[in-house]
Design a protein around this nucleic acid. Structure first.
Lengths: 292, 292
DNA sequence: GATGGTATATTGCTAGAGTGAAAAACCAGC
DNA sequence: GCTGGTTTTTCACTCTAGCAATATACCATC
């Protein structure tokens, strides 16, 4: 009865759980297959497989009249299980590279051997890494790692880049506050500022702060600003993992995030931009001085 | 005697010609295989194949004592033959997409059929396009085109992005003018300003202007600024191809480029940044008003 | 120790058949 | 028209073996 689910099925299942949480759907809410498929950009096939999987786990219930599935449990009880094996491979390579375990140039078969990957998996992970800009295909055979955020210097570079970018994004003519989105990240930041910053994991802290900054910049409705920030954050994530963040300072920064959100919600965009500029300057100094 | 050269061999040959031109090597100059290989990031194998090809074409000569190759002709006589078939495939797809001939979602086999490509070629071109950010792999099968610079709106977005980026790059603490590089692009711009802007091809005009802006930003020595600009330019290139540029205005802009280069060479970086800001504002208005 | 020449080892592409999974089309019921 | 269920079609991955091209190591010479 319980086939081993495919990676895609697991991923879709995880994202359905995320969807339920985002929409705060209460138990009994119908989960429409076509809607989910369109939202997750896949066909109904993996959606149906994922729903069966979630039904086995008791997360969703089979609707009696007419079939289909409904939410079974309240949002608060949902676990976060990602089970993303692609992500693991990616992080292992990133980690090895940062530790200097991987040479500057590697061949695809070398990666396949070292990490016990199929050719398709190698293709997938290389696609992702090159998309993030820290590996490049050579003209002949092989790939070459590009300088990452390893050095202190390039880390500071990334902050000055954001300093040029983010405040400018708020001053875009197309800037319009997405109140719902800002409310969500504001709530997250408030929670952090009021103590959660001391208990939450490194990963989670970074993810939320990232979500805040990206939600703000997303209001600019300018793809170039949004994409650029996302690219920088993808790289930052890899080394923030390995840092020990001073949590008392983090709490202060989260409070500032709340303030920025408030300014935006009050329509004081210019003030928010200026506040954001100062905020980034401060963080930059903290980070780059903190660990030397 | 004359085997059909591989794509890589042709590409390497073309880049060797470019190398000769860049270094302004005179006839008789020795072309060291290992140096070329390191410079082009390939092994000596394709370099040797390319040199044999160029020897057949008479571009390089076989050195008599001790073997090896030397430059045969003066730089001015060199042809520009690219013969880059990967580039052609890429441009065909870009063109079709801009014309609305390609649907939002495509499968790899669909592309292979439509353009008569081998699977490896499909992989290569998708790698490139996704690197430039206008296609994305879907979670399941298939790829989805992302909004490009098709719309007038997104085109304006790209200019405002550069407006936030480029002047800020000049104010980077690590900014240091690469005099040699700036001299080169200054000379190109001067030539354009003094008439060549009216005779040169669309492609060439765009390439030179791009080279100018990127050379300036490269002096910031901040990867994030440099990469971001390159990404925007990759996209701009695709639609600038199809524009009819008003050449009299282009000449004026090239003159401004020369002025900016002069300010930089004189060490007046702040003035250059301000000039660049005004320059970009003007260009933005011209472009976005010109063609409607 | 550079350099060109040569030999060897690896690499990634090709081709074809087979396969499980995903996309797409179709159907029935409300 | 919207929904869940079902069927059909298409897709891309997995093997396998073979191979030309590339990368690498090794010479010989000056």
């Amino acid at each position: 009865m319980e086939q081993t689910p495919t990676p895609l099925t697991r991923q879709v299942a995880a994202r359905i759980v995320g969807y339920i949480r985002e929409t705060a759907a209460e138990p009994g809410t119908r989960l429409v297959e076509r809607t989910l498929a369109a939202h997750l950009r896949v066909s109904r096939s993996p959606v149906r497989a994922a729903l069966r999987l979630l039904a086995d786990e008791g997360v969703v219930a089979v609707a009696e009249p007419g079939g289909g599935h409904t939410v079974a449990r309240p949002v608060t009880e949902l676990t976060v299980e990602t089970g993303d094996e692609d992500e693991e491979q990616y992080l292992r390579i990133a980690s090895d590279r940062l530790d200097g375990e991987l040479p500057d140039r590697v061949s695809e078969s070398e990666l396949a051997r070292r990490y016990a990957l199929t050719p398709a998996q190698v293709t997938a992970v290389l696609r992702r890494i090159s998309g993030e800009g820290w590996i490049e295909r050579l003209p002949g055979y092989g790939w070459e790692f590009q300088p990452m955020l390893t050095s202190q210097e390039s880390y500071e570079d990334s902050y000055r880049f954001r300093l040029a970018l983010e405040p400018a994004a708020l001053l875009e003519p197309g800037f319009a506050v997405d109140e719902a989105a800002i409310e969500v990240v504001r709530a997250q930041q408030l929670e952090l500022a009021e103590g959660a910053a001391h208990t939450v994991s490194n990963t989670e802290l970074f993810a939320r702060n990232r979500a805040f900054h990206e939600a703000v910049v997303a209001c600019s409705h300018n793809t170039f600003f949004i994409d650029s920030l996302r690219r920088v954050d993808n790289l930052r994530r890899l080394i923030e993992y390995r840092r020990t963040l001073p949590r008392d300072r983090a709490a202060v920064r989260c409070r500032e995030h709340v303030d920025i959100a408030d300014l935006l919600l009050a329509g004081r965009t210019a003030d928010a931009a200026e506040y954001l500029r100062r905020h980034l300057s401060t963080v930059s100094v903290e980070k780059t001085a903190g660990t030397g």
